[in-house]
Design a protein around this nucleic acid. Sequence first.
RNA 1: GCGGCCGUAGUCUAGUUUGGAUCAGGACGACGGCCUUCCACGCCGUAGAUCGUGGGUUCAAAUCCCACCGGCCGCACCA
Length: 573
Amino acid sequence: MSDKFNDLLNRRGFFWQSFDAYKGMVEAGGFYDYGPLGVGLKRNIINKWLKTFVVPYMDFTIEVETPIIMPRIVFEASGHLENFTDFLVTCSKCGRKYRADHLVEDELRKREVKIKTEGLDERRLDELISQYGIKCPNCGGELGNVQRFNLLFQTTIGPYSSNLGFIRPETAQGMFIDFAKLYELSNRKLPLAVAQVGKVGRNEISPRQGLVRLREFSQMEIELFFDPLNSTCPYLDDVKDVKIRILPEDDVAKGVSAPREVGVKEAVEKGYIVNEWMGFYMGLATVFLNELGVPLDKQLFLAKLPEERAHYARAVFDQVVLTERFGWLEVSGHAYRTDYDLSRHVKYSGQDLSAYRDLQVPRVEKEMRVSPNPVKIKERYGGDAGRIIKYIYDNPDKVLRDIESTGKSVFEAFEISREMIYVSEQEKKTYRERFIPHVIEPSFGVDRLLYVTLENSFVERNGKYVLRLPPDIAPIKVAVLPLIRKDPYPAIGRRIWSMLVMNGIEAVYDDGDTIGSRYVKYDEEGVPFAVTIDDKTPMDNTVTVRDRDTTSQVRVSIDSLVSVISSKIYVRR
RNA sequence: GCGGCCGUAGUCUAGUUUGGAUCAGGACGACGGCCUUCCACGCCGUAGAUCGUGGGUUCAAAUCCCACCGGCCGCACCA
């Protein structure tokens, strides 16, 4: 299947490896171009995501677009400069590079020393290498110092080479940085969801496997900001009937491999998912995948154990899809990022990225207020009163404390006694307090979704191939096909084609070849409908509409064609 | 990054073992024409190849050697 499938995608031009003209001259794997059909399909997948995650929830969801190149400090704050790294060690003799933590673990296992190197820093790894005398496994040479290889793409901003910039490895940071503005624009309401679709870059050491591991790819992310004291999701009922397949953290830790199939609500109630918002988005993610044509039994939410999680995350589920070619493939990640990101940006930028929370019971604080009594002060010290009064205003707490403990407070040569000040007790009420919101992040990889959509749509029929793409995401909706190229059929066909595209329906016109070979061609391109002009058309203004998946045809009038096709495209399954 | 296999028109491929007369052969696709009345594979014709890149051996290299780049598979990696 895999060969025929790849052959079809290649022939029909969905996507291909970039820089083909320079093949063999440059090392630049992990980049792909989308061809005409790939572009349309990708756009439609993004649109479906927007219609699933953003449009129905515009009462609390907004969309932004932020740069893909960001200055260094952003990634100091986010922790990516420090943590988004692999450890490499280079042999000083033969120049080979190894993953340091894995090399150490492997070599020590050979000496029957069991040690976990996950999470060790480069100093500790250096120590282990010298302590056990680990040498290059290839040539036996001395190993150099362990170095971090950072997966961020680096560039400079402007003409000064010291002004470093980096391509973002996730769209998320732009949304965190903008939180204060976005919160303000949303009338300071939580929960607030911010969505962003865009490109990101990760300088992978050895990318491979086509669209599945790219150095530059597209993400669709949402950062949901909420009050950690109120994590209820009022929209959870929208997905209450959605069944998900899940392997919770406890199961993963115990080595259980059979997933549980439960409703979203049940998964939250039983504690498989620690947060309602996370459950909500995981429910939507399942619906989304269903509508892309991925059956439920090929979907799974897989919990990540603490040591597998990114530096910012408290809980993570990977949404994985069973593929023919790559096995279980991660298409989205659902992370509880806590207040990590906002707090870090507060610390590094000095800006306030907090939100307000109304207190149900106002907090009451008692405050003693001290003010001078000018009459008494003048009585005793006359012309010096002014300085004394100012002193009391500037140091009310000290004056009060002194008087309460010793009966007087001394300022230069003056004694301030109890009768020289007024003391009043005041209540201060606080109705709201500030806090840093917590974040739930569903994050989708567009390119991988495109791949699994294509793979799931591929079927063989009578020795021919069909892409059964859901009609609403198919890049071309209709092929207009005169049965033969002879007057008056082509003219009618062109008129119908024009009518369709003017109504926003993506269509192609084709009068070449035999009718059968054209059906095969457009089946391969995933075109869900074919309109055929035959000998009846000039007589009664009707055409046939052929369904790609059943090959059956219905005859409709040209006048009703646009509405018939539209209703077939957007039917909810 | 390691190991194995591989790189010939848009695509798939013959030729590589045994270097030379194949100025690289075929099929699909594309384009032009003919024929045509509903599910690829009717007929005729046309165009299309720096044989991955660079270097070496040789009178002669797609073919042998080396390096590099890329691809596939396995291992590793994939915050």
